[in-house]
Amino acid sequence: MRGNLYPVVIAIIIGIFVISSGCTDRPVEKVPVKVVAAGSLLVPLADAEARYEALHPEIDIQVEGHGSIQAIRQVTEINRPFDVVAVADESLIPDLMYCPVQNGEGNYTDWYTTFARNEMVIAYTANSRYHDEITRDNWYHVLSRPDVRVGFSNPMLDAAGYRALLVTMLAGEEYQDWTIFSRVIGDYFDPPLVVENEDDIQTVRLPQVLKPLGNKIAVRDGSVFLMSLLEAGGIDYAFEYRSVAEAQGVPYIILPDTINLGTDQFNQEYHRARVILGFPRFSVIGSERTGMPILYAATIPSTAVRVEEAREFLEFFLSEVQKGGRGWPEPLDTPHEFPWNINTMAAGG
């Protein structure tokens, strides 16, 4: 009897071992790939994340949004281990990341690739005052009316904010009306924002605390609040990125290329306007913001934990950007170059 039971006991134990060990159907732990990005990239990144994770169920793309400077600072100053950095101003990567890693080796990065462009527009709704008469030729007349409320992001916090000021300054040259800035924005702050013109460069210096006078102007921390205020009727018009207006599904006025910061062709013209911020919010970067085309750029920091996975996701994301989508910045025509695909390190796109 005992001899007959012995193989049965062993078989039962082996069976329990195999079933309970879970080795036959081992659950897959997802590999996190951490992405830090500008707020205006959150819509396309959310779309790309869903598609990529459907193709690669073993990967967990984790996206965190900030203003572009703050996004880079997460890596360079707060020492967080992000695998991909994507920002709305290509100049920030060489300015802030081509520098030695704290307590490490090499620079935070030595390359980046540009992948999309954007432009400033005037967003509005069907409830905006005078929406049925505003055009790309008269927008500054409409916005300067005392009963029209205008909004833009805080220039201290959001590139779209100082870009709103740059566009309005450039409009003076475009329409040969040097009162546009003061009538639309400048006169409605305490103290007033005044444009100085020296050596053919227009400059506005912001006070430390930007205080709107009355209800004509609304300044909010970021696009999400500005668009919410627009849709609630708290403002009639908002200076915004075209992709943000499209993502929100609101109509917008397209501005002339000479002032919309949207094309390389007018780089020199854009350079003729600049904003000097009220204080250096971040010690790593100065307070001067000069007009230039809005170009998106991405890199993989040398401090990335998941380098291979980050490369694969970045290549996928940029290929998705090429296809485009609602609320996505416009893709560039130039092919992407990655240092792992070419023999020399690329400085720029």
């Binding site: 100053e77 707060i78 430390q208 605390v209 205080k211 971040f282 010690s283």
Partner: peptide
């Protein structure tokens, strides 16, 4: 010390 500054009036 991370270099962040904010100004209150």
């Amino acid at each position: 010390p991370d270099g962040y500054l904010w100004v209150f009036d």
